[in-house]
């Protein structure tokens, strides 16, 4: 063991230049899947060999909202739900910058739902990574727009009766050019999906199903993070190109994952450039 400690001083973590290691350990709970999403994102950047000086990460509020603070690129931690419009401003202000929005389901689909829809409609060149843990975790486990029926949360103590959002369907309907969904354990596939999404010009969405070991799991008695991770992975069915209206997630049932949408649409900048050329 001593030998390992000396080596560990000598050798650096391969993501050292991608993550703010001076801020580790991060704030996420044990068994949380957000770290996996960050890991996949960092790995995707590594694979892409992207110029990190020209990359910018914008996050909203919430557990996943803290991602921006851990990635060693120009990063903004903005207000609740407004990561996408802030990112839109950056993208239009300087089109050379690749802007990535990493935020949670509550941030992107609930309070930022309108911004999500309109950024997709305009097809602004953003990559959105939506970490979906079915709950508002940072505020203490309230019911989220993605909470499946009839899961318990602190604000739905008799079970949730609302219909949950289907993020890929919302994204496709609004006009996203790339939509994929993976669980937080499909690390390699998730990484390649993020690579594809980053390469794709236009509004691309990658949903990551992540366990919330602290709130969602405890109140629903689903075990710890590992149990949930295992459950999501074992109950996921890879169906590429599945129509997005089949992608609703039922409580503790199978989750369809894969790449669902990959299409071409002119981006906002392209359309604008073309318009003013004519």
């Amino acid at each position: 063991m001593e030998a390992i400690i000396t080596q560990q001083e000598a050798k650096r973590h391969p993501m050292d230049n991608l993550l703010r290691m001076d801020r580790m350990p991060h704030i996420w709970c044990p068994g949380c899947g957000i770290g996996n999403a960050v890991s996949a994102f960092a790995d995707a950047l590594d694979k892409l060999e992207y110029n990190l000086d020209k990359l910018c990460v914008v996050s909203g509020i919430g557990c996943t909202g803290r991602v921006a603070g851990y990635i060693k690129v120009d990063s903004f931690h903005t207000t609740h739900g407004r990561a996408i419009p802030f990112a839109t401003g950056i993208k239009l202000g300087n089109p050379d910058i690749k802007v990535v929005v990493i935020s949670g389901d509550g941030d992107l689909v609930s309070i930022g739902g309108n911004h999500f829809v309109h950024a997709a409609r305009r097809n602004i060149d953003l990559t959105v990574i939506c970490v979906n843990n079915f709950i508002y975790a940072m505020t203490g486990g309230q019911v989220a727009p993605t909470t499946p029926t009839p899961a318990y949360t602190t604000t739905s103590p008799f079970g949730n009766f609302e219909n949950p959002s289907n993020v890929p369907q919302l994204a496709e309907a609004a006009g996203a050019v790339y939509v994929a969904r993976w669980t937080a354990l499909h690390m390699r596939r998730l990484t390649y999906s993020i690579v594809d999404a980053l390469k794709k010009p236009g509004f691309s969405v990658v949903e990551v199903i992540s366990p919330c070991a602290m709130y969602y799991s405890r109140i629903n008695k689903l075990g710890d993070g590992l149990d949930m991770m295992k459950f999501y992975y074992d109950h996921s069915i890879i169906k590429h190109g599945e129509p997005t209206d089949h992608l609703e997630i039922d409580y503790q049932k199978e989750i369809i994952v894969g790449k669902f949408v990959d299409r071409e649409r002119p981006t906002y900048s392209e359309s604008m450039g073309k318009w003013f050329e004519d």
Partner: peptide
Amino acid sequence: ISALAAVLGASWTGK
């Protein structure tokens, strides 16, 4: 809300 958010984002690009 998003109008001012976009303005803030654009301002950080130097505009």
